[in-house]
């Protein structure tokens, strides 16, 4: 099994085992989603990625202004749900969303327990995806970009 599949399987298993989260998403601090347990078609993961990474980065900046060091996690309580943004490795974090009855502190403690295993998987992902440029045919990609640009515009202005 490839590491990304292992990460996805790990999240799915933990979501079930912890009986905690509505959803667990692992993403880079740039907002790129690595794995998710979200199943609802209504969930727009790309929007979610940009907003959560923007939020985390904003609080990181705030923390820097206070010379408080890097944020390790953020907890948010809303009327219906609790959210946890947990840093996993330097450039990755986990978003866990739980129903309101699961208390935020409890959510944090439970997620903390899975962190070492998850961090190990993320490190493996980073190692395996360290760009060895020889694996990517940049010329081929560049050559076929124009055709794709034309395709992009078909069906626009709808």
């Amino acid at each position: 099994m490839q590491v990304t599949e292992q990460i996805a399987a790990f999240l799915a298993e933990k979501k079930k085992a912890l009986s905690l989260s509505d959803m667990i998403v692992l993403e880079s601090t740039n907002g790129f989603i690595l794995a998710s347990t979200a199943t609802g078609e209504a969930m727009d993961l790309e929007s979610l990625g940009s907003l959560t990474s923007g939020g985390l980065t904003a609080f990181d900046m705030l923390s820097t202004l206070f010379a408080a060091g890097q944020i390790s996690y953020l907890l948010m309580e809303t009327a219906e749900k609790n959210f946890l943004l947990q840093r996993v490795e330097e450039n990755y974090f986990l978003l866990a969303v739980a129903p309101k009855q699961v208390r935020a502190g409890y959510l944090r403690l439970r997620v903390e327990k899975i962190l070492p295993d998850l961090a190990a998987l993320v490190r493996r992902f980073c190692e395996e995806n360290a760009v060895s440029i020889g694996d990517i045919d940049i010329d081929e990609i560049t050559a076929s970009l124009d055709a794709q640009f034309d395709e992009l515009l078909k069906g626009g202005d709808r």
Binding site: D44, E46, S47, S50, L51, G54, A58, I136, D137, E140, I141, A143, S144, L145, Q148, F149, E151, L152
Partner: peptide
Amino acid sequence: GKLISLKTETERTLFFDFMPVDIGKVGDM
């Protein structure tokens, strides 16, 4: 994807605009 615009009340950009575009399969990627 969706266009996300975090704007002020006067329609000025407050934080960022965001939009994902799927260029498609180029080469193998």
